[in-house]
Structures are given as C-alpha cells and as structure tokens.
Design a protein around this nucleic acid. Structure first.
Length: 221
DNA sequence: ACCCAGGTGGCCC
DNA sequence: GGGCCACATGGG
C-alpha cells in the first residue's frame, strides 16, 4: 500500500483536520513544546492560563519570570523543563530576528531546521511541527503514532526518526497542505480507534487494527 | 492502582 | 545505531 493511498483513506474517513489548533504561529510554537509527551487537553489548560494572563506572545514569554511561567504551564507536566524551554526559544527568536517570525521563517528550510534543532529542548518532532504548522514549511512530522502505524502496516520498520521522515518525504509530493493533513489525520486515527477502544472495528487502514496496543507490540517481536 | 499522552536529553554500551 | 532513565500532570 502506497503512502498516498493511506492518506486518501484517512481523508475520506475523517475529513479535513484544520491543524494546528492555534490562533498564531507563536501559539503553535508554545503548543508544540507543551505537548511533548503530554495529552492535548492538558496543553489547552496551560494555553488558557497564558491567555488569561495576557502573556501568550513572544516578548512576554521571553521576559516572564521562570517561576510565574512554571505555574502557568503546570497542568502539562514536566512544567519546570517546559517553562525553561519556552523561555529559551522565545529569547532565541527575539535575538535572532527581533521576534519577527515572518522574517525568521523566510530562511531556507534546511537552515531553519538545523537552527531550531540546535536549541536545547527542541527535538526533531517539535522542530518539524514548528516548521510545518507555524512556518508553513514542507517538513513532515513523525510522531509515536506514525512509527507504530508504519510498523503495524509493515511499510517501514525503522524506528529512526530521520529515516522515517525521509521515507515519507521522498514518497509523497512535497506539499505543505498534504503534510499538514496527513500528520493530523494520523493523530486523529489513533485517538479515534486505538486508544479508547480495545478493538478497532471500522479502522480505515485495515480490519481489526490494533497498532497502538501494547499486546500487539509484543506479539510483533 | 495502574496505563498513557501529538518527546527530549543524558547517559550507557 | 539502540536501550534506559528522569522529567510530572491529569484523564481513563
């Protein structure tokens, strides 16, 4: 099964996803850090806190005390690391482009990616999410769901991030809209069929899909 | 009382 | 290249 076929199946099943759920590029960046190994519902609580305090802006975060920021992002867990990461990123962007994200994202993709990866606390998934959903750059996002999906379907057994990313990017047209929807659809698939339900009747990818389940993981070994 | 969530860095071999 | 661990809250 080709990647593009999988995409079409998912799209037919779930429709357009309208990602990222954020009002601005900077909010995407904040959400990308906060959602690291964290349920989105918790991220929403933190975002709400930041909005209520009127500090969901690059310069505000860059200047906010670590202590206050920690309290605001507390619901997402790992709140000490995340507060620090948000400040580091904000301060970096303030220095490198005077907080002008438009200008920041005008640089070539490979350069941007390397630059962001060099920031402590931004790993490949966070960086690619920022590039794709905040910057509108064609950088495919690989997450735990994507890895499991590939394993489950026998498409690509590699667990290596860059290998999988390259696999998706070289087997799909380099299209921002496609990359955007595809990743979002994979997350929606996992949420709808593989977390809350013990079985996956009606899974559009294959019958009785259980790719996210632990039992299945050990069976595959 | 578990298990897990749209990961990352640091350390080990 | 992989395996293991800390980081931490909240929902099922």
């Amino acid at each position: 099964m080709q990647l593009i076929e999988i995409f079409h199946k998912l799209y037919r099943e779930f429709g357009e996803q309208f990602w990222w759920p954020a009002a601005s590029p900077f909010e995407v960046i904040v959400g990308a850090v906060l959602t690291q190994n964290t349920a989105w519902g918790n991220v929403e609580k933190a975002i709400t806190n930041l909005k209520r305090k009127r500090v969901l802006a690059l310069r505000e975060i860059a200047n906010l005390s670590l202590n206050k920021l920690e309290k605001l992002v507390h619901p997402t867990g790992f709140y000490r690391q995340k507060a620090k990461r948000l400040k580091v990123v904000s301060q970096y962007l303030e220095k490198s482009c005077q907080g002008n994200l438009r200008k920041f994202f005008s640089k070539p993709l490979p350069e941007l990616r390397e630059e962001l990866l060099a920031i402590n606390g931004l790993g490949p998934e966070t960086v690619d999410s920022i590039l794709l959903y905040a910057g509108g750059k064609p950088s495919f996002v690989i997450d735990a769901y994507t890895k499991r999906l590939c394993q489950r379907l026998g498409i690509n057994k590699s667990g290596d991030y860059e290998t999988l990313k390259n696999f998706f990017e070289s087997n799909l047209p380099r299209d921002v809209r496609l990359f955007n929807e595809f990743h979002a659809l994979i997350v929606t698939l996992a949420k709808n069929y593989c977390r809350t339900k013990p079985e996956c009747p009606g899974c559009p990818l294959e019958k009785n899909c259980q790719f996210i389940r632990k039992e299945r993981k050990s069976l595959d070994k």
